[in-house]
């Protein structure tokens, strides 16, 4: 079972996150577009979704809302970590389980993911 699905369009950020989390032993998959994001989640059924707020074609908030409304209750309850580049002001994303502002400390990312996976 896939540990983490990350939906992030910035290739360098995605690369960094995957590198950091892979070294902790988690299995990380990547989807680089808002479009197709929810299908990727449904297909992979990851234990954790890392979701960028600002995505091309479909925003992270929309994807999150659809996920929470999914018919499959276990899928709808998937923990979601939101990444945002909008600064502290937009940290209140009630449907997300956690929010991390870019740029982040790698330790914060690791700690947060670890807490959410356990």
């Amino acid at each position: 079972m896939l540990d983490i699905l990350m939906i992030e369009d910035e290739p360098n950020i995605a690369e960094a996150v995957r590198f950091i989390l892979s070294r902790e032993g988690w299995q990380v998959a990547l989807h680089a577009d808002g479009a197709g994001g929810i299908e990727a989640i449904r297909g992979a059924k990851p234990r954790l979704v890392i979701l960028d707020v600002m995505l091309p074609h479909r925003s992270g908030t929309e994807i999150l809302a659809e996920l929470r409304g999914d018919q499959d209750p276990s899928l709808a309850a998937t923990p979601v970590l939101m990444l945002t580049a909008r600064g502290q002001a937009s940290l209140s994303l009630p449907q997300a389980d956690a929010v991390l502002a870019k740029p982040f400390a790698n330790d914060d990312l690791r700690a947060m993911v670890r807490r959410m996976l356990n």
Partner: peptide
């Protein structure tokens, strides 16, 4: 300003993450 913030934070995120790595 929000957009600028976004545009600045995005590259900084990569820079910070990789410099720690």
């Amino acid at each position: 300003l929000g957009q600028i913030s976004h545009e600045l934070r995005t590259p900084m995120t990569s820079v910070r993450a990789f410099s720690e790595i």
